[in-house]
């Protein structure tokens, strides 16, 4: 006991205010550090450290083979080149946005519609939900393979059906004007079940009282939807739109498995272009700059989301 006391006194000089006084509390504190040690070290090595390093690399020219200390400094040259001279990057950025916005808006409408259907008196709600959710857990790579097969120009089932109906054969993934639309359709197919599940949960959180009150006032189903359901689903909508837009902006597997960016870069996306630049052409600096540009966009979306959330809670 006295030993502990002397030790405590001797350490008092550098002890922060929150430093626990008793030996027992100190032992607990040490355990807490042990508990967080691996996760914290791991996140430093594989997340925080890398993002700083990535930012540093984006200001250099680097092929990953020459020593890190000898990377030639380029300043903002990589960013300047990508935004003003590169023939593909602006296109990839545009395609990525088109993919994200097209998929997310379609799915907000479809997801909400099917959730409304499932929220009525219906048999087998769990079964419906399972069926609609199946593609969500399926690898995008596998879905890409299946859909590339279905939409194949020559032997694909969709073209066979079109020809059977006397309609002209379509290029689909081979047609620069259609390929992105097909990719959006695949993404809509894959993720609509996620929206259904989220909206269904959102609908079930709306208190029945609101609907009862509306019925007393004689509101039509459309008025009820327009003035009760839709406004009360706003937080859910905001959440799915933001998280899914951020997710869709990072698309890689699906594009890799279907078009690999072709035809004529009409489906080239930022992460695929970054992957090619880094791992096919060994231009790590330029690829890192691409990553940072997209990251900046994603951060901006996140900040807007946080602001919208805060505004609503205040209002």
């Amino acid at each position: 006991m006295s030993a502990t006391r002397t030790r405590r006194r001797s350490t008092a000089g550098w002890r922060p205010a929150s430093w626990p006084a008793s030996g027992l509390a100190r032992r607990r504190m040490i355990w807490a550090y042990v508990f967080i040690a691996i996760p914290v070290i791991w996140l430093m090595i594989f997340s925080l450290g890398p993002i700083l390093f990535s930012g540093w690399v984006s200001l250099h020219r680097w092929d990953m083979l020459s020593p890190v200390a000898e990377m030639p400094w380029e300043g903002l040259e990589n960013y300047r080149f990508l935004l003003t001279e590169d023939g593909v990057f602006p296109k990839a950025l545009g395609n990525t946005f088109l993919f994200a916005i097209g998929g997310v808006t379609t799915n907000v409408v479809l997801g909400m519609a099917f959730a409304l259907l499932l929220n009525t008196r219906i048999r087998g709600r769990t079964l419906w939900r399972v069926i609609y959710f199946l593609p969500v857990i399926t690898a995008p790579l596998a879905l890409g393979v299946i859909f590339a097969f279905l939409f194949n120009r020559n032997y694909g089932l969709v073209n066979s059906l079109l020809i059977l109906l006397g309609l002209p054969r379509q290029g689909f993934l081979n047609d620069p004007n259609q390929a992105m639309l097909v990719l959006i359709a695949i993404a809509v197919y894959q993720y609509v079940g996620y929206y259904v599940v989220i909206y269904l949960a959102g609908l079930q959180d709306i208190p029945q009282d609101y609907y009862d009150a509306a019925r007393v006032d004689g509101g039509s189903p459309w008025q009820v939807f327009r003035h009760i359901t839709l406004p009360l689903l706003r937080p859910v909508t905001l959440f799915v739109v933001v998280t899914n837009t951020i997710g869709a902006l990072q698309v890689f597997d699906l594009v890799f498995a279907t078009t690999a960016g072709a035809p004529a870069n009409s489906t080239m996306t930022v992460v695929l272009y970054m992957y090619n630049t880094a791992f096919k052409f060994s231009r790590m600096g330029r690829a890192s700059a691409m990553a940072f540009i997209l990251f900046g966009i994603i951060l901006a979306i996140t900040i807007v989301q946080l602001r919208l959330f805060r505004d609503r809670t205040v209002a």
Binding site: M29, W31, F35, L43, L48, I51, F53, Y275, A291, L299
Partner: peptide, 27 residues
């Protein structure tokens, strides 16, 4: 648990949640 640096470390972890995979892929 109470321990010095708890808030700071937790916010750091929250911050890493916002880092997309592609930014750290090369490093």
């Amino acid at each position: 648990y109470q321990f010095p640096g708890r808030e700071l470390l937790f916010y750091l972890i929250l911050a890493t949640m916002m880092i997309p995979f592609f930014v750290t892929l090369i490093p």
